[in-house]
Design a protein around this nucleic acid. Structure first.
Length: 285
DNA sequence: AATCCACTCAACCGCATAATG
DNA sequence: ACATTATGCGGTTGAGTGGAT
């Protein structure tokens, strides 16, 4: 009954990987592709548990991994996403395709957390992140058409609901920004109205439908969205589906990719740098 | 030169969830 | 439906390293 054990628990080697082991693992993955990790120790002769093999591959050997030297843009993204998602390192890392969750987690724990604490020891970290986020939100909402949902609590609920509603989608998570048709409709308040929130909840499900159409497992995907410049087409697809559902009566036409654009678009990096500067200069921090 | 200490990060551990028979 | 294992994720640990004393 059930699956067979992934590997024997006896005679498993632990500790740092040797170059020879790395070569064995890389050769195997190059030939067979990543996955089916329970077969890896057997087929390669590695005295490692399958878990260890997977970890070594995803965190170190996988192609396209960037190591060290996080850019200010990346720092800003991590700070923002941590405020939005909490310690969901895999989700955060999905927005930084060249970084692993382990990397992001380590960087947060060794650098960013300390930095934030240094700026304001009296303030709780989540509050600092919130304050940091709010400041940037204020800047963003006054200077851009797209606006953040102005409460991280709502975003958090939104994400929870989203994940509950979609067991089939990739584990990647994404926050959603409301993009209102007119700025006035956004209200600019700290909390969304029920109507607004329901609109988003509905949009969560909408998003799932469209998301599943995308190449979720694609190596070039970022957070489940293909980084192929098809965002606009994708957004149009969603908007059309939304219009069909709402009979064009919806007050909202949220652009699900706005956050991704905001986070990934280098042209927005200035906001992050501005935030970093603010963090350095602000008496709050 | 030797020792101590703080820091970094690769790797491990344990848990939750998904998958399988 | 249930038991069992695989997989993925977040938290934690500890070896290695470099700077301070």
């Amino acid at each position: 009954m059930g699956r067979s054990p992934c590997c024997d628990k006896v005679g498993i080697k632990k500790g740092p990987w040797t170059p020879e082991e790395d070569i064995l693992l890389v050769s195997y993955v190059q030939e067979h592709g990543p996955g089916n990790w329970r077969l890896v120790p057997t087929n390669t002769g590695l005295q490692r548990c399958s878990k260890s093999c997977r970890l070594r591959w995803t965190n170190y050997l996988r192609p396209g991994i960037k190591r060290g030297n996080f850019t200010p843009h990346e720092e800003g993204m991590i700070i923002h996403l941590q405020a939005l998602l909490g310690n969901k390192w895999a989700a955060i890392a999905s927005y930084l395709p060249q970084r692993t969750d382990n990397d992001v987690k380590n960087y947060w724990n060794t650098h960013l957390k300390k930095q934030l604490k240094k700026f304001q020891p009296a303030m709780e970290l989540p509050q600092m992140a919130q304050a940091c986020l709010n400041k940037t939100l204020a800047t963003a909402s006054s200077s851009t058409i797209a606006t953040y949902a102005s409460s991280t609590e709502n975003i958090s609920r939104l994400l929870q609901g989203w994940m509950r509603a979609s067991p089939n989608i990739c584990s990647n998570q994404s926050a959603i920004i409301l993009q209102t048709q007119s700025k006035d409709e956004s209200g600019g308040g700290d909390l969304m109205s029920n109507e607004h929130f329901e609109s988003i909840l509905w949009f969560e499900n909408m998003n799932n439908v469209a998301w599943e159409k995308s190449a979720c497992g694609s190596t070039t995907s970022i957070g489940g969205f293909q980084d192929s410049g098809n965002d606009d087409q994708f957004s149009v697809e969603i908007t059309q589906e939304m219009k069909q559902k709402t009979g064009n009566n919806s007050r909202f036409y949220p652009s699900f990719s706005s956050l991704e654009k905001w986070l990934l678009d280098d042209s927005c990096a200035g906001q992050v740098e501005e935030m970093n500067q603010w963090m350095e200069l602000s008496p709050i921090f």
